[in-house]
Amino acid sequence: MSAAICLLGYAAAVAVVAPRVLTRLTRRGTAPRLGVVAWLAAIGSVVAVTIAAAAIAAVDLARAARPGNPLTEACEHLANLLLGDHPGSPARYGTAAVATAAVVATGVAGIRLARNLSASRRSTHGHARTARLVGRPIVGRDAVVLDAPQRAAYCVAGRPHAIVVTSAALDVLDDR
């Protein structure tokens, strides 16, 4: 169980510290590919380590169970060990409360994630639609030009996507 705790500690540390450090290192955009690789490595390591910690905890929990017992009895056994090996109702109620809290927390997190993803999708679709309505298309390119004094070029993800370039950015570019 200590390996799972160490892995979760690593994941928490990287999830808290990496964004601050990587934001400072990649803010200027001097090496964008390296910056993307660094961000993806940090994100990927946190996800991989969290999955590994969950797998290690599940294996440890399965080993704690006596052969033939279901997972809930393994949780009760773990709760009994934590309570000083006093079998009975406190361990059962504690196990049920922890399991219920975990299920509710997972459900709430899933609902929030679905709502956020849906809102983000609506926002990007609206942004792409607005850019296509307001801007003028570039002949021979799948892009839209917006009249603006600031230089900017970006892509709005989604279906259909929109590549947006401002007129100020086009003025700076050569024909090639």
Rank of each mutant, 00 (worst) to 15 (best):
Met1Ala: 12
Ser2Met: 08
Ser2Asp: 09
Ser2Pro: 05
Ala3Val: 15
Ile5Tyr: 14
Cys6Phe: 13
Leu8Cys: 09
Ala11Lys: 09
Ala11Ser: 14
Ala12Asp: 06
Ala13Lys: 03
Val17Lys: 01
Pro19Phe: 11
Thr23Lys: 15
Leu25Trp: 06
Thr26Ser: 15
Arg27Ser: 09
Arg27Asp: 08
Arg28His: 12
Gly29Phe: 14
Thr30His: 15
Thr30Glu: 12
Leu34Gly: 13
Gly35Glu: 02
Val36Arg: 15
Val37Phe: 11
Trp39Glu: 02
Trp39Val: 13
Ala41Asn: 01
Ala42His: 02
Ile43Cys: 04
Gly44Pro: 00
Gly44Asn: 00
Val46Met: 01
Ala52Pro: 00
Ala52Thr: 09
Ala53Arg: 10
Ile56Met: 13
Ile56Glu: 07
Ala57Gln: 13
Ala57His: 14
Ala57Pro: 03
Ala58Pro: 00
Arg63Val: 13
Arg63Glu: 11
Ala64Arg: 12
Pro67Tyr: 06
Asn69Ala: 14
Asn69Ile: 05
Asn69Trp: 14
Asn69Lys: 07
Pro70Ser: 05
Leu71Ile: 12
Leu71Ala: 11
Thr72Gln: 07
Glu73Leu: 15
Glu73Arg: 10
Glu73Ser: 08
Ala74Ser: 10
Leu78Val: 14
Gly84Leu: 04
Asp85Ala: 10
Gly88Ile: 00
Pro90Tyr: 01
Ala91Glu: 10
Arg92Val: 14
Tyr93Ser: 08
Thr95Leu: 05
Ala96Phe: 09
Ala96Thr: 04
Ala99His: 02
Thr100Asp: 15
Val104Ala: 11
Val104Thr: 09
Val104Asp: 07
Ala105Asn: 07
Ala105Tyr: 14
Thr106Asp: 05
Gly110Tyr: 04
Ile111Arg: 01
Arg112His: 10
Arg112Gly: 03
Arg112Asp: 08
Leu113His: 14
Leu113Ile: 05
Asn116Val: 06
Asn116His: 15
Leu117Ser: 06
Leu117Arg: 12
Ala119Trp: 09
Ala119Ser: 13
Ser120Lys: 14
Ser120Gly: 15
Arg121Met: 11
Arg122Glu: 09
Thr124Trp: 04
His125Cys: 05
Gly126Met: 07
His127Lys: 10
His127Tyr: 14
Ala128Thr: 06
Ala128Arg: 03
Arg129Glu: 06
Arg129Trp: 15
Arg129Ala: 13
Thr130Phe: 15
Arg132Phe: 02
Leu133Cys: 02
Val134Ile: 06
Gly135Asn: 06
Ile138Asn: 03
Ile138Gly: 03
Val139Thr: 11
Gly140Trp: 01
Arg141Phe: 04
Arg141Met: 08
Val145Asp: 01
Val145Cys: 07
Leu146Met: 00
Pro149His: 08
Pro149Cys: 05
Arg151His: 01
Ala152Ile: 07
Ala152Asp: 07
Ala152Gln: 08
Val156Asn: 06
Ala157Met: 06
Gly158Arg: 11
Arg159Val: 10
Arg159Gln: 11
Pro160Asp: 04
Val164Ser: 00
Val165Glu: 06
Val165Ser: 04
Val165Asp: 04
Thr166Lys: 05
Ser167Asn: 09
Ser167Gly: 13
Ala169Tyr: 08
Leu170Gln: 10
Asp171Trp: 08
Asp171Gly: 15
Val172Gly: 00
Leu173Phe: 03
Leu173Gly: 02
Arg176Leu: 01
Arg176Cys: 00
Arg176Asp: 03
